[in-house]
Amino acid sequence: MNSGGSSATVEVEHLTKIYRVHKRPPGLAAAMKSLLRRRYEEVRAVDDLSLSIAPGERVGFLGPNGAGKTTTLKVLSGLLHPTAGKVRVAGHVPQERQAAFLKRITLVMGQKQQLLWDLPPSETFALNRAVYDIPRVQFEETLEELTRLLEIGEVVGKPTRQLSLGERMKCELAAALLHRPEVLFLDEPTIGLDVSMQLTVREFVRRYNERFGATVMLTSHYMDDVAALCPRVVVIDQGKLRYDGGLAELVRTRRPEKRAVVGFERPVVRAELEESLGGMGRVVEHSDGKAVIQVRQSDLKAALAMVLARFPVADLTVEDPPLEEVMRELFAGEKPR
């Protein structure tokens, strides 16, 4: 995947990151032994990863735990140095950590906070204004806009420790975006938040992206975040790139089957339904008045016609399988060789 010229905001070429970690064996006797001799193990967190992201893109970064997502984001934001490969973000080499670079990016980590715990968020904002050397007019403008978008006007004056998790995350986002970064790295920004707060954060990220044309790279455990926010997804597993492309295509190529949710007027026997389907598909869920049928795309029309003809159908909807399932399939089906 070669990037075309310098127009890309994020360019990663053959990135590899290897850690050397100390292995701590369990048990007293083994621990005694490791006092004398320490065993190291190499962990290939990122393995020959290449990708390129254009300005203004929103990219979802998916993969199971320990796939190397956070490591990649840390390399991209300059916290970690690549073991091999080339990385450029916003025209800079991240690991040089030039002030000009740091002013153009932001990294939000859902698990770590920069807000000062015992002071109101407004103090952290003031601190960041000084640290990022933001002109006062621009600062006030941005703050006003962020406050409106995130609806945090009420809470910025209260000590951070008194805020709810959701309020804290919103203020965290505001603090991270005051300097109007062009590149946003979001690592699990919605972790632990309730559904409505997830929606708010998601909606905010989309608006910020549209309003400022910023490039967004996001990891999340919640597939809904990615599905709602990112037209493009990058999937990695064990540090290796597994997929890079449109979300819709991913779902289509990995799961060419469709799901039909059928409601019946009166109970239908499962075996009967399965027999009638024959080789076209299978019943994945069944209760008295309802069944979920999974069929290949090509057989969809025929299968639906059969069901409508033979059973007392009250209503019928067709949908794609949930993204979680697509992912599970992707990681289960394609173990590295």
Partner: peptide
């Protein structure tokens, strides 16, 4: 006591 000892063992130079 045993748990504490095992935990203590993990730190290589601490003992010395």
């Amino acid at each position: 006591l045993r748990t504490s000892l095992t935990t203590g063992m993990q730190y290589r130079w601490e003992f010395l």
